[in-house]
Amino acid sequence: MSEMTISMNGITKDFGRVHALTGVDLEVGPGEIYGFIGPNGAGKSTTIRILLGILKADSGQAQLFGKDVWSDAVDIHQKVSYVPGDVNLWPSLTGGEVIDLFVRLKKTGDQRYRKELIEKFDFDPTRKCGTYSKGNRQKVALIAAFSTDADVYILDEPTSGLDPLMEMVFRECVRKVAAEGKTVFLSSHILSEVEQLCTRLSIIRQGKIVDTGSLREMQHLTRNQVHVEATGDLGGLKTLEGVHDLSLHDGEAEFHLDNDHTAGVMAFLATQGATRLVSTPPTLEELFMSHYEA
């Protein structure tokens, strides 16, 4: 019996000759907002579709609430809200009908926030889905997902068609369910979103998890961007360990600094009469790019 809400162990999936996933491991605890980021085609959707028992993994174990995602799918889904990456709806049904249908298919019968969410997302439920834009189809899925009670929310790039205002509404929804102690699994390639919402994250690339941890842990492992002004000579930085991409102008220097060499560099700067020091941790974007280039 696993304590984890989501756990995946060595999940592998091939589509013919395409290796979509190789040995994916994931552990998401209850109450976490977990980010899952990677470029297009990295395997995010495949991972999620395996989690939902829509695809069958070639090998490895995947569990939700300690139950097997494939054989116990129907049970599990009563406690899962899912927003797929490509929301394809039935052109002949209205948005409101689809929202109701989804809630009924989940069989929990509860529809607490429907009206409130429709207002918040500024959504017209009386039109046929065939006439909705991508953003509006996404809203259908989001309203259906957040209007019902679930223990875990699995969201596959849920904001890719939304405008910035609606993204804010979305983030509000996520924070609200998180505050109620629910688990959120959010796949995205929009880094600022993950950065703002998630406590922990995994980065996936070409079907492999390349990094996992909290944002802070990840930032620790990498370099800060440092800007310094000093009265003395900063040329000595060139010889110091842990300094990269150095650029010098008179009395100013700009470089990347390995976190574990901070002390040495600080000592040097103190001897050169530093007047101003700005150190910025890497953004998720930079983290991501560093994995991407690797």
Binding site: L52, G53, I54, A73, D75, Y82, P84, N88, K107
Partner: peptide
């Protein structure tokens, strides 16, 4: 093929 079954099977539907 239209990708709509994903959604239905993502619910509590066997």
């Amino acid at each position: 093929v239209q990708g709509r079954l994903d959604y239905v099977l993502g619910k509590s539907v066997s």
